[in-house]
Write a protein that binds this DNA or RNA. Sequence first.
DNA 1: CATCGTATGCTTACATCGTAAGGAGTATAT
DNA 2: ATATACTCCTTACGATGTAAGCATACGATG
Lengths: 224, 224
Amino acid sequence: MTTDVSRKAHREPLTRERIVETALRVMDAEGLEAVTMRRIGRELGVEAMSLYNHVEDKESILDGICELVMSEFEFPDPAEDWAESCRRAARAWRQLLKQHPDVMRLFAEARGPVRSVDSMRPTEFALRLLRASGLSDRDTAQAFHAFGGYIQGFVIMEMGSIAGGTDEAQLKVHEELAAALPEEFSTLRDVSPYFAECGADEQFEFGLDLLIRGVLERVRAQPA
Amino acid sequence: MTTDVSRKAHREPLTRERIVETALRVMDAEGLEAVTMRRIGRELGVEAMSLYNHVEDKESILDGICELVMSEFEFPDPAEDWAESCRRAARAWRQLLKQHPDVMRLFAEARGPVRSVDSMRPTEFALRLLRASGLSDRDTAQAFHAFGGYIQGFVIMEMGSIAGGTDEAQLKVHEELAAALPEEFSTLRDVSPYFAECGADEQFEFGLDLLIRGVLERVRAQPA
DNA sequence: CATCGTATGCTTACATCGTAAGGAGTATAT
DNA sequence: ATATACTCCTTACGATGTAAGCATACGATG
């Protein structure tokens, strides 16, 4: 009987957690379309249908991926001044989204907000940080959406743009595009080079600074 | 022979344009998952495979949807002051995204940037507007990403959140959620009511104002 | 220890998807 | 009139999510 046991024992027992982790790993490595019940099963040495003993359906796995990613958020160390703390937090969030390039596609699908405790900790952290600026509770709620929206949207644009290739390659593409443009698009032609020239990091900081400055000014104008 | 002709003639000839329009209509009415080659065909009184005479593949149809939506952008009338013009443009863009609730999911998929002339007109418009604030060309490029990211990200959050139901229903959900929260989440508990209380419109304006104020301050600090 | 319910995994099967291959009919060019 | 090209249809294939049912192994109870 020991052999019977060992035949089973030499593989870890399946759990929802292991399934979700595996799915995330596959997604990061080969993209969302590679995340398939059969594929996840194969990765775990199991048939696709076996997953259903631990998971309601595929969507539940995708929900799990969202929770897992959220829970991976690394809380940045606080800085001396508020603006810098805020920047660090925003960078950490963008960093996380970029580490799992397809996760924004999951967020974009209508699935309800993530509810697990682990995945709410980053939210709590962000709210606490925003409120520490001196905003009222009400403005804190609104600022949360402003920063959250900005960061997520920025990452989407970042992924969606030319995305691949070196900076030089990008610049070339932009030059060609600008050259082929009708007169009608003179502004686009003027500005286009900077799309490539300004790295994504710099662009991110720019918008972030706009938001931060906006918050600081608002706090000055009407303290909580 | 007239009869033979008429048998065919009584339905519009298939074109890429009609296919894309139909696909968008289906998507708006029943969501992205309803957009199927067979379904689009049925809607046009045609078999699925017939579509391939006018369209490379399904992805090309989805690209077409993105272009079509972009080209639907309604340019707002200019206002007396720059901030208000900017607000109108941002509202128009958000409005458009909300009119086609699943289009952000398409944008979020890695597909390259939309290149058709019609769909670049809104970009040109936005750049022209931003530059009119007094920003340098370089800062204009960056501000474009800031505003674009914010608007798109905001709409995603807006869709993803509780989304359905009246304001009262939302408020109730938030109350229940807050009540069930561990101590650890005191800030979330404090702020949560305002997530529901502040309507999405008000929240959008808040973040928008942050960005606009940021831009104005930057222009004042370093004119182009 | 025997047994029996419960959990876990496997096999098979089905509807639906995107689309490859090729046939039939019509319109246009020669 | 004949050939060519285009449009649309039929059929078929592999992949997907998952329903249904069977086999096995484990843990609790007698």
